[in-house]
């Protein structure tokens, strides 16, 4: 009799546990790791801009826009140094680095992208003279692919500009399918992801710039955006989008199906207040510019 009762209890427990664990896997477990804030050593952060993780050097670079500087942190998020380019940087926003160690920094207030070669002590704007278009280029966020091609959001022409590894203009990728282009990322396979804020959509293009997929919308329902600001793709192909007004990160699969969201409005560590930029490195660490909290929040 007791055996039978024990068996029934075990079966019931299994039934209870199985869906819970399945649910947990489906939702993904994202834990807050640390936060990087201003301090006495580096001073307080001004308006935070963008960030980039250098896989070769295991370093995190962050643009402190209103203080006109780039800050470097090591793999343990300890401050290493700051770079101002001797005053050449005025209000840097987006930052990327190619495999040869050259930095590219967007200065939308000046309408250019600075190419910084620290070894050669050279800081020069990329030449936009070959770029056609109705409006002068207004550079926004950037991405670099495995071939060192540079992708630049041109907000004034709703397109992505593609430059080769020698910083020569290659072509435009017009993002005709949406409005208010704000961010771009490229995955390992070379697929290009473009986020537009006005219609809250993500457009995916192949490595040649051919349109593949569009998903996402603005609205109050689950998986819809209030005000999306940035996106990133992890090594599994999951797409993470920061929502500045929902104060959450929404996660989608590679077909655009909403999976789950994490974090919420707050000031304590692990919570977000107007997140404005996201970057995911190869080891799966999620770096979020938590703009109104003036810090970088790191999740994994």
């Amino acid at each position: 009799m007791y055996r039978k009762i024990n068996f029934v209890i075990i079966v019931l427990i299994l039934f209870l546990i199985m869906p819970t664990s399945a649910f947990c896997r489906a939702k993904g477990v994202v834990k807050h790791l640390t936060s990087i804030t201003g301090n006495k050593e580096i001073g307080r952060f001004g308006l935070p801009g963008g960030l980039f993780f250098d896989e070769n050097k295991n370093r995190l670079y962050f643009t402190d826009t209103t203080n006109g500087r780039i800050l470097a942190f090591d793999a343990d998020f300890k401050y290493i140094s700051e770079f101002t380019g001797g005053g050449a940087l005025t209000s840097p926003t987006s930052i990327v680095k190619d495999s040869n160690g050259k930095f590219f920094v967007a200065e939308p207030a000046k309408g250019h992208i600075l190419k910084i070669d620290i070894g050669r002590k050279s800081i020069k704007p990329i030449n936009f003279s070959a770029v056609p278009g109705a409006n002068p280029v207004h550079p926004g966020n950037m991405a670099v692919d495995s071939k060192d091609h540079l992708y630049i959001v041109d907000k004034a022409n709703q397109r992505i500009l593609l430059f080769d590894s020698n910083s020569n203009f290659k072509k435009n990728i017009p993002v005709k399918e949406s409005r208010g282009l704000i961010d771009v990322k490229v995955d390992k396979a070379g697929r290009i992801y473009a986020l537009s804020v006005i219609d809250g959509s993500i457009c995916v293009y192949d490595d040649q710039g051919n349109f593949l997929l569009k998903f996402g919308s603005r609205g109050a329902d689950k998986g819809e955006f209030d005000f999306p600001t940035s996106l990133a793709v992890d090594r599994k192909g999951l797409i993470y989008v920061t929502d500045q007004h929902k104060n959450k990160i929404l996660v989608f699969n590679n077909k655009g199906r909403f999976l789950y969201a994490f974090s919420q409005l707050g000031w304590r560590e692990g919570r977000l207040h107007r997140p404005s930029f996201i970057y995911i490195n190869n080891s799966g660490r999620i770096f979020i510019v938590d703009r109104a909290n003036t810090r970088i929040s790191v999740f994994e």
Binding site: L47, G49, T65, T66, S91, T93, P108, A109, K110, G111, A134, N135, H138, K155, A156, N157, Q158, R159, R179, G180
Partner: peptide, 14 residues
């Protein structure tokens, strides 16, 4: 006005 860090710049005759 549109040479700023944050702008309402858009495409065409925005």
């Amino acid at each position: 006005d549109f040479r700023k860090v944050n702008t309402h710049i858009g495409e065409g005759v925005f």
